[in-house]
């Protein structure tokens, strides 16, 4: 039995410790917001926060997450009101939407370290997240809008 702390909640799961965190989240704990896109850390659809770092859950062995704090898209904010979530809706970013939870989780890690990212900063930080529909321009704008909200005092959990 492995105990995981995900979105401030403890889960006991009976899985092979070598299993990627992604599949434990999706198949066992039933948190399916974290997406499977490539399985080899190339597309970013599976990004979660492990002690605040934007790790790719598809290559993260679940054993590595034991005793650590995992945050998924479902736990990014309590009321789905993270500035990034608000900005994403405000600018109507998604097309198919499949990659967006990974995009938002990557962006959240960026905003924590860089309160006022330039377009160049955003490109450098986000180039690991693929959007097949091509919503990159809107994501850039949404990250900057969220940064502005954040600076104006909307609290980030």
């Amino acid at each position: 039995m492995i105990t995981l702390n995900i979105n401030k909640k403890n889960y006991n799961v009976d899985v092979d410790p070598e299993t990627p965190l992604l599949w434990v989240l999706r198949d066992v704990i039933n948190l399916v917001g974290t997406k499977y896109g490539c399985g080899v850390a190339q597309c970013g659809a599976c990004v979660v926060h492990l002690n605040g770092e934007a790790v790719r859950s598809c290559v993260t062995k679940v054993s590595r997450a034991v005793g650590q704090k995992v945050v998924t898209i479902e736990g990014l904010s309590e009321k789905n009101d993270h500035p990034l979530q608000k900005a994403w809706i405000e600018l109507d970013v998604p097309q198919c939407g499949y990659c967006q939870s990974g995009q938002i989780m990557s962006a959240a890690a960026l905003l924590r370290e860089n309160k006022n990212p330039t377009e160049k900063d955003i490109d450098a930080a986000m180039a690991g997240n693929i959007c097949r529909c091509g919503t990159y321009l809107r994501i850039r704008k949404a990250i900057q809008l969220a940064a502005e909200m954040q600076r104006k005092g909307i609290k980030i959990p």
């Binding site: 948190l31 974290t34 479902e74 990014l76 979530q85 994403w88 998604p94 939870s101």
Partner: peptide, 11 residues
């Protein structure tokens, strides 16, 4: 706005 926007951004 996309009627499924909130569901998309909240996973």
């Amino acid at each position: 706005k996309n009627v499924e926007g909130l569901k998309i951004v909240s996973g």
